[in-house]
Write a protein that binds this DNA or RNA. Structure first.
Lengths: 351, 351
DNA sequence: AGAAGATTCGCAAACGTTTGCTATTATACA
DNA sequence: TGTATAATAGCAAACGTTTGCGAATCTTCT
């Protein structure tokens, strides 16, 4: 069927081992024969079979990206950074959507191990049992995790400074004078979100005049943000500010607020986390914590490539990337005097 | 290193061929020995090496998805559909971002062919030269294209009914009384966008009272939509409606309009294409043409799986999936009388 | 010119499977 | 009991590479 190394060897009158050497590096092969072989290979349009090569070298030049859902713009951005880095390292990237389902996740990993990928970049293993994590750590292929797992230092990790991000959000809302503050987040097992929550709450509680936020947990997607906000507005109609665990939840909160006839930021201040592209597009432009998603994906794959390179020294690497607050127009100063000063109050008559 | 079929064979006292048969299907192997082998394999935690298997079977159980940029929510949705279908077919999916660069695209294909993927799903080959397309068609692996390529019927195709979608947008804007209409789109080579443009323009031109739209071509992403709209507003300040070739461009148009102090839909009507999730989130919620992105990805991979299944009968398959107009709040009736009737005019005093 | 060393290249094993063929044993039937 | 047939399992080739080793040739130096 396809043209193999044997065809090239026969056609250029040398042994297959010479063809292999000529095409791969050229050491130990005469310059003239090398040129001849290369020419023949080009003429026959020879494509080395990387499956066969992988079998003998033990490297497949494939990396895997296991994340919850590529439709989350955060992961799309991250995936792009990862893919670019993989490509630069001459690897390709297989995509797996786990939906954070532990069974699905382990099933993916099994399949990836059978396929002998050179490394795996995972969104989260926090949902896995301790035993499953141990099995993972012992599986032989390098694994980089995207959230800091304080428990298991067997893995390399890349993460944004989520805790600091949460703290930034808290300081910002406090600075604007908010006291009745809510926080929308996901289940406790979710590492990233939990770190944000921790930073947020502890900063609020350690203020000169401590604040105890209302914390609601649920699905951390658009509909989750929407539902939690509606629930919040029912139970605590007096909240003045919401910190959403991610931008997509914040978008859900915007929708819920609109449905209830509330305006942002006039009636409700809102701050997100992630700074995905559409955060600047929605009305009003969303104030949020920026995390360098592309760079995280890129950095994670670079670690993976290094780990895959020399199988012997498998020392885990940990990288934390900085976050920053992007101030837009979804939060307002609470005190009326100040709000007139910054001209963010549309109802001066009512002040 | 890893446990191989030989280890299982030795441990259970049979030949490796028996192990292979026992684990794969069980034909021609005694029930008792089968059970014994299975037990041993489980005890040793044996994982068959799919690289080796792929070498002999000629199938890698990998499919590839070559698209312009996963960060485009359209492609993220599509990728999710594709991945789900691939997983259901026991394949995994490698992700490639081509940025629609012909060189990059061919480079990806070369690499994928070397890796012997079982099939390739491509966003677009329209940017490729006729010769490159011919090479692609002859490469031996099944290829499904995402846009209808009227030229080359060698490939299978899956597409939304883009032309009808463009026509729907045109009819809708005409129905609202618009006459000064602009259309933002990408380069002529872009199959999808061109079909939309064709349907849009021909419908406008074949109206009782024909309209000639202003067509602007540029980058078909957020910043492209933004820049084109600014250019449009500079050159044609009297336009009343814009049809953006996709939602992301529409979002760019929203941003540009806001920057120029124009309100949507009061000062400018806007209709998009795709109906990505955030179309319903932005302010105002975007009227757009829905195309079934998840289903398209799913359908394309199903075709690929079928094609990969029996290598002999390689008859291309073509599937067109329907679109529909989602009416939200980004377009207004032009005539003032009507607009009062439908209460979409916020400035009754000026009417 | 002869020896030592370098260069070039072929041979064959190895990677871990699947699978056609054959040998052996068990089963059925006359 | 003997023979035809079916069930079971082993042997070995094949898939397409890479790579260690050794043979042959060429180069260089004394």
């Amino acid at each position: 069927m396809a043209v193999t190394i044997k065809d090239v060897a026969r056609e250029s009158g040398v042994n297959i081992s010479t063809v292999s050497r000529a095409l791969n590096h050229g050491y130990g092969v005469n310059e003239q024969t090398r040129e001849r072989v290369v020419a023949v290979a080009a003429r026959l349009d020879y494509r080395p079979n990387r499956v066969a090569r992988g079998l003998v070298t033990g490297r497949t030049h494939s990396l895997a990206l296991v994340l919850s859902d590529i439709r989350n713009p955060f992961f799309a951005e991250l995936a792009r950074g990862a893919e670019d880095a993989a490509r630069a390292g001459n690897c390709d990237l297989v995509l797996c959507n786990s939906d954070l389902d532990p069974d699905k996740q382990m099933q993916y990993v099994r399949s990836l191990l059978e396929k002998r990928v050179d490394g795996i970049l995972m969104n989260s293993v926090a949902v896995l049992s301790r035993e499953q994590q141990a099995r993972l750590a012992a599986c032989g292929v390098p694994i980089v995790l995207l959230n800091r797992s304080a428990l298991n230092r067997a893995f390399s990790t890349v993460c944004a400074d989520n805790e600091t991000g949460g703290a930034l959000a808290a300081k910002y809302l406090l600075g604007l004078g908010h006291r009745k503050i809510a926080h929308l987040t996901g289940p406790r097992e979710h590492g990233n979100l939990s770190d944000r929550t921790r930073g947020f709450i502890s900063t609020l509680q350690s203020a000169k005049d401590p604040v105890q936020p209302i914390v609601l947990r649920g699905k951390f997607n658009f509909s989750g943000g929407c539902e939690l906000t509606k629930q919040l507005l029912d139970e605590h109609p007096d909240v003045t500010a919401i910190f959403a665990g991610n931008d997509v939840m914040a978008f859900g909160a915007v929708r819920a607020a609109l449905d209830r006839g509330l305006r942002i930021p006039e009636d409700l201040s809102l701050i997100g986390f992630d700074n995905i592209e559409f955060a600047s597009v929605i009305h009003p432009p969303l104030t949020t914590i920026h995390q360098p998603m592309y760079e995280m994906g890129h950095a994670a794959i670079e670690i993976l490539l290094r780990l895959a390179r020399d199988k012997n020294k498998q020392v885990p690497e940990h990288r934390t990337l900085g976050v920053e607050l992007i101030e837009r127009q979804s939060c307002r100063q609470l005190s009326c005097i100040n709000s007139i000063a910054v001209n963010s109050c549309n109802r001066p008559a009512s002040c």
